[in-house]
Every structure is written in C-alpha cells, then in structure tokens.
Write a protein that binds this DNA or RNA. Structure first.
Lengths: 153, 153
DNA sequence: TCGAAAATCTCGATCGTCGAGAGAATAGCG
DNA sequence: CGCTATTCTCTCGACGATCGAGATTTTCGA
C-alpha cells in the first residue's frame, strides 16, 4: 500500500536528519581547528556545565567513550588552544576538573545555541497538538533505535 | 511560556535520536570488526546498489568525504575482509567499480533492514494525518539544520 | 597525434587512539 | 592507626586512519 512507502520515507528522513546534524558539528570543528572528538568533548563539558556540574577527566572519558590515555591527549589538545582549563579538585586530589573558557563557551553557545533557537523558531508554526504528536513519534522511534543499538539480534 | 520548554525538549530529542542512531552503526562496526568510516562506505555502496548504480572509487570518496589516498586504503581494507570487490570498468579503464559481496549485503540488510522494519512497524499506530505532520516537521527541521551546516553565520 | 585532464594508486608523514603500566591519593579493613 | 586495595590521571610506545604530493595509466579534445 501507499502508507508503507510513506513510512519508509520517514525512516529515510530520520537518517538524513542525522547526517545533517552531524555536519553541523563537523562545521564547528572545521571553523575552530578541532576534530570530531574534540567537539563531542566540548559539548559534553558544556552540557555538564549547564547542569551545574564540572566534569572530571574520567567522566569526560565515559561521556565520549575514550580510554584514559586518549582523554589525557584530548584534554591536552583542548587545553593547548585555550578551550579548557585543568583545575585540581580540592576534595579529591587525584581528580582533575575541567572548566571551559569563556571564549569557548561563547563560541559553542553561538553555534549550537543559534541552531537551537532556529529550530524552536521553526516549530512556532505548529500547534501544541501537532507538537505532541511529533514528540510521541520521536520518543517511539528513539526507543526502537535504542533497542537496536543495545540488544543482540 | 510552557510551549517554549516543550520546543526545546523536542530539539533535545532530535539530538538524542541522532546519538542513538549513530550507536546503531557503531554496533554494526563492532560486530564486524570495522571502523566508522568503513560502515559509512558500505552504507553508501549499498544505497547506490539499491538505486541500481555501482559506485566507483572516486564517487565513494565523495560520498564519505575522503581523499583518494584514503579511499584506496579504505577499499583495501574492505576488500581484504571480502566485503567488497574491485571490478575494472570496461567503459573507462581508469575507473574501478565497487561491488559488495553477497555476504556483506546480507549482513547489512539484516542489521539496517531490521531497523527499518521495526521503525515502520512502530509507525503503524499513527494515522496518515499524524504521519503527515511528522513528515512536515522532519523536513522543516532538516531544512533548518542544513542551513546551519552549510551557510556562514 | 599530442598534450591536458581524469581516475586511481604509492609513498612518507602526521595525528588520534589504545594497552600496559607507573605514580599519587583515597578508602576500607583489621 | 597503619597497611593494602582501589581509584584517578598521566607517560610511553605502538598501531591505524587520513592526508598531501607525486607517479601511472587511460581518456578526451584540439
């Protein structure tokens, strides 16, 4: 039937959206001389900061799925260009907290915050009921995807 | 207002979905001893095959944004494990066409086709009108994202 | 026919990631 | 309180993916 084609197209649309969203991060990376991992790390640090937490090196490694040796190198890179500062944790002196520089924070807010703003603006033409449908849809699809990402087939 | 929070949450949901969809590819890579690029390449070859085309090395490089030297190495890797075959193009003997092995094709169909099936199945509880809303939404959001990925701020 | 352009490959170099292990600090247990 | 096990980060050496420059083969146009 026709509805099936429409559904497949929706799945393709999700993939397309994913690819393009990736490209946004890619662009930010290019503009700032970073690689994909560095951007992921900065986003993770930013997200944590927004939650009021300061990420430690170890937590950052979990967030971006990197071993400790790679995290050291990663933070070295970010610190060298001034995006991040290593701050010794006074409570546990083994730990190293990571703080984003104001400049990096501003650049991130400019880039990703701008996207967020434009996205929500583009949603203004939708009614609350429509957005509710979209939300349910996205949650359902995410659940299916998570299932595929985690479980064994 | 409340609707603004809902809109921001929707944007976050999109990001979450992107992350999880990435994880699906990651999992496939892990299961088959491939890296991220290899999976992207196989998907590109598969997509082309579905359209009835055979990708050349150069086209593949464009699809996954890699220089020719890297494409050579990439195809070497895929060929070594038997996922891909180099086939000389009879029309233009400078070119090398790429053909996926049946086994690799089957593995890809199993993994990603299964996801596609489950996604469309999860859409069955939605009316045509609801899906139309979702489609419009995804297209609108993709357009905004593309804008951010390409244009200069 | 001959030179320019195109498609792929080779080589050497660079960079990100990792495993193994060292060093410092903490937690827990007797 | 002291001693050991654990936690957290860093160092080192190795490996793999990517790239730029250039070589090679083939095609196309004048």
């Amino acid at each position: 039937m026709d509805g099936d084609v429409a559904r497949q197209e929706l799945a393709l649309l999700l993939r397309r959206l994913t690819v393009e969203l990736d490209a946004v991060g890619q662009r930010f990376a290019l503009e700032h001389g970073l690689n994909r991992t560095d951007v992921r790390a900065l986003v993770a640090i930013m997200d944590a900061a927004r939650r009021g937490e300061a990420l430690t090196a170890g937590r950052l490694g979990e967030a971006v799925e990197l071993r400790s040796a790679s995290v050291t190198a990663l933070v070295d890179r970010l610190e060298k260009v001034g995006h991040v500062r290593r701050v010794p944790d006074p409570d546990d002196r083994r730990r190293v907290s990571l703080e984003m520089s104001d400049a990096a924070m501003a650049a991130g807010a400019e880039h990703f915050g701008g996207l967020q703003r434009d996205l929500t603006a583009a949603m203004s033409s939708y009614s609350d009921e429509e957005l509710a449908v979209v939300r349910r849809f996205l949650e359902d699809m995410t659940a299916v995807i998570v299932q595929h990402a985690r479980s064994d087939p």
